[in-house]
Computed example of a mutant assay.
Amino acid sequence: MDILDWIQNWFKSNCDGDWEHGDGIQITTLDNPGWDVEIDISKTSIASMNLDWILNENSKQDWYGVKIENQKFNAAGDSGKLIFLLGLFKEMIEKIENNTIG
């Protein structure tokens, strides 16, 4: 299953008549250029998780960052990182579901 199929299924499985009327999933562009991904995790098993901003910057054209705060998964990255950023979210959700994150 590719990442877009997975995120689409994850979104559908979390729609409860209320959650999807809030922030849900937002994907926007940055002007440097890059991507910004924000996903509401308030109704998930990681809702109480917090993660300070982690930045991995190899160059101005090769970077990404991720954080979790206020019940939101936030990730940003260069213009080639959208699939990677969504993959980070998928990996985190799957680790939680498999009880492999402490």
Rank of each mutant, 00 (worst) to 15 (best):
H21S: 12
H21P: 04
G22N: 11
D23H: 10
G24D: 09
G24W: 05
G24K: 03
I25A: 02
I25S: 04
I25D: 06
Q26M: 13
T28D: 14
T29D: 06
T29R: 13
D31W: 04
D31H: 08
N32R: 09
P33Q: 07
P33T: 10
G34M: 01
W35G: 00
D36G: 05
E38T: 06
E38Q: 10
E38L: 09
E38I: 06
I39K: 01
I39A: 00
D40G: 05
I41K: 00
I41H: 01
S42I: 02
T44P: 04
T44F: 02
S45A: 15
S45G: 14
A47T: 07
A47L: 06
S48K: 11
S48Y: 06
M49D: 08
N50H: 08
L51P: 02
W53C: 10
W53E: 12
I54Q: 14
N56T: 15
N56E: 15
N56G: 07
N56F: 11
E57C: 11
E57N: 09
E57I: 10
N58W: 09
S59V: 04
S59G: 07
K60V: 13
Q61D: 14
D62E: 14
G65V: 04
G65K: 01
K67R: 15
K67L: 14
I68R: 01
I68M: 13
I68A: 02
E69V: 08
E69F: 13
N70G: 13
N70E: 15
N70L: 11
N70C: 12
Q71F: 10
K72Q: 13
N74H: 14
N74Y: 05
N74T: 08
A76N: 03
A76E: 00
D78Y: 01
D78N: 11
S79L: 14
S79R: 13
G80H: 12
G80A: 10
K81L: 07
L82I: 09
I83D: 13
I83S: 15
F84R: 00
L85T: 03
